[in-house]
């Protein structure tokens, strides 16, 4: 599940629940639709409400990094809970400079 909010050129997508291959497509669709129409300077993916994530969540982050770059924006991944830090660090997305 995802809720989005747009202000000051920042699109914030707050993610909830479990992110897996089943859930990722609808999240992706909603964020990409808004990214294309609003063309934000920054896209913030807020993980504070995420209780579980597998590599589909990593694919989701990397895909949004590409999508927001296409409209000239930057990605930030915010509020990563403790239980997701292991998979986030394994993924190497830290090297994209998106973690806050």
């Amino acid at each position: 599940m995802v809720e989005t909010k747009f202000s000051d050129d920042v699109l914030t997508a707050k993610l909830y629940g479990e992110i897996d291959h089943h859930k990722a497509p609808s999240i992706r669709q909603k964020i990409d639709g808004q990214t294309e129409s609003l063309r934000p300077k920054e896209l913030h993916l807020d993980f504070s409400g995420v209780s579980f994530m597998d590599s589909s969540g990593i694919g989701l982050i990397m895909g949004r990094y590409r999508q927001v770059s296409l409209v000239g924006g930057k990605l930030k991944v915010i509020n990563v809970p403790k239980n997701l830090q292991k998979i986030i660090s394994l993924s190497g997305i830290d090297s994209l400079g998106v973690l806050k």
């Binding site: 990722a24 992706r28 597998d54 590599s55 589909s56 990593i58 694919g59 989701l60 990397m62 895909g63 292991k86 998979i87 394994l90 993924s91």
Partner: peptide, 15 residues
Amino acid sequence: SDERAGLGFAVMQSF
């Protein structure tokens, strides 16, 4: 060809 990270086995190995 979809949005896959190619990390599934790496996750299984490290977890």
